[in-house]
Simulated scan of single mutants.
Amino acid sequence: MPNTASAKKRLRQNEKRRVHNRGIRSRMRTQLRRVREAVASGDSEKAQTEFRIAAKRLDQAAAKNLIHKNAAARSKSRLNKLVKSVA
C-alpha cells in the first residue's frame, strides 16, 4: 500500500484510468466482433456500416495509446479485406 500522499493519489489516478481504458478497449473489441458477425451472416450493408464504426473505435484507441497505431491500421486493413470479400 502507498505511504505518501502523492503515492496514494497516483494509485487513485491509476485505478480511474484502468477502468476508463478497460471500457474503451471493451467497446472496441465488441465492435470488431460485430463486423465479423455481419460478414459471417453475409450482410454486406450491415458489415459496411459496422466497419465504419469499428474503424473509428480503433483510431480512438490508437490516439489514446491503448493500442499501437500500426496495430490499429493492421486491424482496419484486415477488417476491410473481410468486408470487401462479402460485397
Rank of each mutant, 00 (worst) to 15 (best):
Q31K: 04
A5L: 15
R78N: 09
Q31A: 07
A7F: 07
T49E: 14
L58D: 02
S41Q: 13
N3D: 10
R18Y: 09
N14K: 13
A62D: 00
R18C: 00
S77K: 11
A54W: 06
I67M: 09
R10F: 07
A5C: 05
A87Q: 15
K84V: 07
L11D: 09
K8D: 01
A73M: 02
S26F: 13
R27V: 01
A5M: 13
V83G: 00
A40W: 07
A47G: 03
R22E: 09
E37V: 09
K76R: 10
A71S: 15
L32Q: 06
V35T: 02
R74D: 09
V39G: 00
E37P: 02
T49A: 14
K56C: 01
K56I: 04
E37D: 15
R29S: 12
T30E: 10
A71F: 05
R78S: 10
R33K: 15
R10W: 07
K64M: 10
R33Q: 11
S44L: 06
N14R: 14
R57S: 02
K46L: 15
A47T: 04
A72C: 04
R52E: 08
N14S: 13
L79R: 00
K84G: 01
A47E: 02
K76H: 08
A62E: 00
F51A: 01
R34G: 05
D59L: 02
R22F: 06
A87D: 15
Q31D: 01
K46H: 10
A73I: 01
R12K: 11
R34Q: 12
M28W: 05
K64Q: 14
A55G: 04
R52H: 10
H68A: 14
L58F: 05
I24L: 15
N80V: 05
A55E: 08
R22K: 13
R17L: 13
K76M: 02
Q48R: 15
K9Q: 12
P2W: 07
F51K: 00
K9Y: 06
K9F: 07
N21F: 08
L82I: 05
I24Q: 09
N3L: 14
E15A: 14
K69H: 11
A61L: 00
L11T: 10
R74T: 11
L82G: 05
R52L: 08
T49V: 13
R27H: 10
D59H: 06
A71P: 04
R18G: 02
K46A: 15
L82R: 07
R78Q: 08
